[in-house]
Nucleic acid binder design. Sequence first.
DNA 1: AACGTTTCCGATAACGTTTACAAAAAGTGT
DNA 2: ACACTTTTTGTAAACGTTATCGGAAACGTT
Lengths: 339, 339
Amino acid sequence: MITIKDIARLSGYSIGTVSRVINHHHDVSTAAREKIEQVIAENNFQPNTNAKMLKQAVSSNISVLVKGTSNLFLETILEEIQHLLRESDHGIDVMFLDETANEVETAIQICNTHKPLGIIFLGGNLNYFRESFGGIDIPCVLIADTASQLGYENLSSFATNDIDGSREAVRYLCRQGHTRIGIVGGSSDNERGYIGSRRIQGAVSVLKENNLVFDLEKQYEPSLFSVQDGYRAMTNLIRKSPEITGVFAISDMVAIGAIRAVHDMGLRVPEDISVIGYDGIEYTKYYVPRLTTIEQNTMQLAQKSVDDLLLRINYPRTAVHEELPFSVIYGESVAEPRK
Amino acid sequence: MITIKDIARLSGYSIGTVSRVINHHHDVSTAAREKIEQVIAENNFQPNTNAKMLKQAVSSNISVLVKGTSNLFLETILEEIQHLLRESDHGIDVMFLDETANEVETAIQICNTHKPLGIIFLGGNLNYFRESFGGIDIPCVLIADTASQLGYENLSSFATNDIDGSREAVRYLCRQGHTRIGIVGGSSDNERGYIGSRRIQGAVSVLKENNLVFDLEKQYEPSLFSVQDGYRAMTNLIRKSPEITGVFAISDMVAIGAIRAVHDMGLRVPEDISVIGYDGIEYTKYYVPRLTTIEQNTMQLAQKSVDDLLLRINYPRTAVHEELPFSVIYGESVAEPRK
DNA sequence: AACGTTTCCGATAACGTTTACAAAAAGTGT
DNA sequence: ACACTTTTTGTAAACGTTATCGGAAACGTT
């Protein structure tokens, strides 16, 4: 392995000077810089990251923690983050966690081992942040949920307003004339902090405002975020409440599962039951019927988060919380209810 | 930060002994071990990874390089790999590369910086391996393409036989009575080494054997692996050859795009045009119509790859190349052709 | 009691960097 | 020519670990 010592020997300068060249210090003569850079290039020398990190006690990496696997929405954002970060000279360090994992605990571990400059939480459960986020003191960003009420100095958040979004979804069903509306998704106990709970909350509030609550127990069927679970939940919901004509699904994946469930019960979307989703993942635009859904702007979510994180890494300042706009995608999965 | 030195001081032993306890060496008295372990636990000390890696010149990590973003098939395997690796005491280090990147070059970089114990290539273009894989000397596994003809001592591969799989797909269309069969997918130049080319090759071979080639130019439309591209390609194909009644799509995502294209041309799947995909990603099982496809066993692909890699990391031996079985998923997207 | 074996432990030299600090070289102004 | 300042360079200590080596203690064996 070729080290800084070799470069020093080969270039005729000391390792101190080589190090200064590597780290772009200004106090190096042009002669030395050019010679050393040449030798570095010739031997395509790469400084040992571990030695560097050991000495400096930080890396130049950004860690990304993705909560919940098989989540196409988060994965789309992840891709964009990677793309954006590739421009900067930061390394990127992705880790996937399953739904049940405690992302903050994991982040603390990562801080100790990887010493990232910042952390991006892609998805997450606010409860874990409440519990133990205090243990983290590097800039962080939470994407897809708002952490403003937590009030940490170093945790920004960017998200669409899930309550408004889900309200808009259900309102759209109402405007189409639906009066027997069901909801699929959210955790079984609707605990505070779980991202799904806000969507449920928004949806239910519109139902209440329009006096469309006939039996909340029978209108609402909990579900995780997966297709499978959406299928299961929708099947249950139809069994419980066959009179339902419109359904708000907590995510697009759940919606896809739900549509298949409708189909397997011998009914059709949207003729018999309308379905509206949430997230706007690219791929449901090719579904037949094209999914009607609340689209979150993944590009913007990624861009703003990365910008804010890099900004705060370079110029420490207090965190921000921003709500990004959503939009309704009018697909083919919602129609007027059958008479 | 709490270091091994602190533990030494606090426990009354030397850092050498503490190190031995940490690394589970046998030459430590039970008294010392217990005392030191207690102090470690009390201060929840975690050895500094960088110092460790600097000293040992290797990490205990496995790097995974995922080629091609938004590929649900590879992402499913990735999940399973992560799951399997979590059992072992190896860290995991994921990196996504876009289609155009040279994964082998990247791997060489990673070897220098991260010093992984092994590398898993998830997807990949054999051409890059031909070019420069020689620069890598740690155990590697290529998933989803076979590297047997390359003959590297340290590169195993696990894949289904893509030629047989695509042959099976087209044969199934033939058995259903289709005689005007189209193909969607593969790179425009069908370069050797590109994973799609083998599937095209298999598909075409069956057409030839059955004298079903009426105009290869008009039967075949190139496409990348994305939904969008599948849509575009299928639209072109129908325009070129409206007489086609069955289509083999090079991946499930392409198939989904293709189905939507059929729909948008005012035709139906499978009544007017049958579509068969490739990969068997979970989620197309919920599609309406449920996709008929060639399923690759992601679980097995992941398991075998991880097993082989860990085995070769611990007991150096020569690489293996194994073909895994595929199976036909009989969905609802293929039917007999219209008279 | 003397010796050889084991078993356990501590001191210390690395690993490849960065960064004070000091030294040397090169300018500057008189 | 001198004393300054400024710029450039080299030296050496540190970062937290592991591993080698040898010493000390404990135990058997004659």
